[in-house]
Design a protein around this nucleic acid. Structure first.
Length: 545
RNA sequence: UGGGGUGUAGCCAAGCGGUAAGGCAGUGGGUUUUGAUCCCACCAUGCGCAGGUUCGAUCCCUGCCACCCCAGCCA
């Protein structure tokens, strides 16, 4: 039952089980607000909550924290469920909504009023702010703080009945306006919002605040470990206060961990939303975004994200993870599972002058180490293409290029010698004339030649035109969001190139594959059989070509 | 400045009184018809700084310093 992973939260849970603080069956929850799409930061929390429950034989709720009808929608509820499922987690029948508990929550609020622990306050939002004090100065009591229980109950019921305008009154906890913890300075518990809620419709016009709702929902669901991010540390005394002052005989501990930082990326919902609305990216699923839907469209497999979340660990330290770690996880998830093929991006025509036919078939393995992935046929012929960047009229020995009068192996094909280069007016190569070495066929090479470079290539007869989208970091600063977004964006974050790909890649159902020497690719959702479009998921390591 | 947190290598992260795990990145080498993969080796006399306690401190004590979070009727 114990896991190989260890962090302060898992250690705490292990202790709680051993000391019978929980009875051996733990319960966690992933509680997103349905006001946007999930990103890789949420994945960290999902992997933690679901992972910990799996490891210790417990269960996890997917609970939507839908207490603010102004920002939330069914669209987000849908997308979040799809993303959690895609990541590989199952909440079974434990799908809940904070709005499921609105009646009970209301009851607990009346309880607080009856105990003299909450009051209806007529101050405006501005007045509340003004009397809250500052970081260094205490706040002052609301003139409505000492209303009688009867008056409070009456006013609160009328708030619920819709008798008052938005902003005219709120329900506040009566705690301590001089507390050094600002969250304890008579926090608002309920506010009036005359808006339709995506699940409860027009039933309510008062909505509970996060601090009142979250702890009660946790308690009602029997959450044994309420895990959240660091910025809620100051809210914990309020979490505890509410549960201590309401009649619930279950009190989950809130445990905080640091949120994920990923260099060259933003997780802020506000910034993500503006990137989309300002047209800097094409939507929530833009492959450059760290959203789950963006990563999915990019071609990143869910196992890679889970692996990544496991490797970054869980602590209370602020962190900014290097993208090389994510890239590593993506490659290692893809390495053994992805069939290989050849794609020539930015093709340079090559004519094999000592070869007349156009239809010779060669066989190539789909993976150098995994024979179960099968083989495929390559066509060799007089008319071929290699990648423009693989040719240089002259190059040093270190550069693995085909040079004029030089040799190169065409992978799984023949060795060729470049005998002539046709150039345009500017002097750049537009065609290569090569001579192939007949006895150098891959697998039965008796030529004795050892060219230092092996090139990927494609024959005209086997080539299908395709578009290739190559991505770089969306931002050119490690920690964006500090200044003007426009200045921080990388202008070349998305580059689309034309090229050629083996027909088998179009015909077959290979979901993702490695284009040898180019990286791992996936068909984009824009792709059609007539106009194939590939996203580069990640380049191969070392990269410099 | 009040309160709450955090400081171990370039980035993460174990260790919590007995002499610094691991991963990523990097470097060197081996294998290789992908400059890929794989394999091997190297990579902190040092744990924010300064004192103190102790036979012994990254771990305990004191004092500093740095960084993050909090003043929504958002979550």
């Amino acid at each position: 039952m114990s896991s190989s992973v260890s962090d302060f939260i898992r250690n705490r849970i292990r202790d709680d089980i051993e000391n019978e603080i929980v009875d051996g069956s733990i319960v966690t929850r992933f509680p997103p607000e349905p006001n946007g799409y999930l990103h890789i930061g949420h994945a960290k929390s999902i992997c933690l909550n679901f992972g910990v429950a799996e490891e210790f034989g417990g269960q996890t709720y997917l609970r939507f924290d839908d207490t603010n009808p102004l920002k939330e929608s069914a669209e987000f509820v849908e997308s979040i469920q799809r993303d959690v499922r895609w990541l590989g987690f199952d909440w079974g029948d434990r799908l809940t909504f904070a709005s499921d508990y609105f009646d009970q929550l209301y009851g607990f609020a009346e309880q607080l009023i009856e105990k003299g622990r909450a009051y209806v306050c007529d101050l405006s939002a501005d007045e509340i702010r003004a009397t809250r004090g500052t970081l260094t100065e205490p706040g002052s009591n609301s003139p409505y703080r000492d209303r009688t229980v009867t008056e409070n109950l009456n006013l609160f019921r009328r708030m619920r009945a819709g008798e008052f305008d938005e902003g005219s009154r709120v329900l506040r906890a009566k705690i301590d306006m001089e507390s050094p913890n600002i969250h304890l300075r008579d926090p608002v518990l309920y506010r009036i919002v005359h808006a339709e809620h995506h699940r409860t419709g027009e039933k309510w016009c008062i909505y509970p605040m996060y601090d009142f709702t979250h702890c009660i929902c946790d308690a009602l669901e029997g959450i044994t470990h309420s895990l959240c991010t660091l910025e809620f540390e100051d809210n914990r005394p309020l979490y505890d206060w509410v549960l201590d002052n309401v009649s619930i005989n279950f009190h989950p501990p809130q445990i905080e961990f640091s949120r994920l930082g990923l260099e060259f990326n933003v997780m802020s919902k506000r910034i993500l939303t503006s990137l989309i609305s300002d047209g800097h990216v094409e939507g929530w699923d833009d492959p450059r975004l760290p959203t789950i839907s963006g990563l999915r469209r990019r071609g990143v497999p869910p196992e890679a994200i889970r692996d990544f979340c496991g490797r970054v660990g869980v602590t209370k330290q602020a962190n900014l993870i290097e993208t090389s770690l994510l890239d590593f996880c993506v490659r290692s998830a893809l390495e053994d599972t992805s069939p290989r093929a050849m794609a020539v991006i930015d093709p340079l025509p090559v004519t094999v002058i000592n070869f007349e036919r156009d239809d010779v078939t060669l066989e190539a393995p789909n993976h150098p180490k995994v024979p179960e992935l099968g083989t495929r046929e390559l066509t060799f012929g007089r008319n071929l293409f290699i990648e423009r960047s693989d040719f240089r009229e002259s190059a040093s020995k270190k550069q693995r290029k085909l040079t004029l009068n030089g040799l190169a192996r065409l992978r799984y094909g023949f060795i060729v010698e470049c005998v002539d280069v046709v150039t345009d007016d500017q002097g750049s190569a537009i065609e290569l004339k090569v001579r192939y070495v007949p006895e150098s066929q891959s697998g039965q090479d008796t030529s004795g030649l050892k060219p230092r470079s092996t090139l990927h290539w494609i024959s005209a007869a086997n080539a299908v035109p395709a578009k290739f989208r190559l991505f770089e970091h969306l931002f050119n600063v490690r920690e964006p969001g500090g200044g003007d977004l426009g200045d921080e964006l990388n202008p070349t974050s998305k580059i689309e190139k034309d090229g050629l790909v083996e027909r088998v890649v179009i015909d077959d159902v290979w979901e993702r594959c490695q284009f040898e020497r180019n990286g791992y690719f996936v068909k984009d959702s824009d792709s059609t059989p007539a106009e194939p479009v590939f996203n580069r998921i990640v380049p191969l390591s070392s990269g410099v070509r």
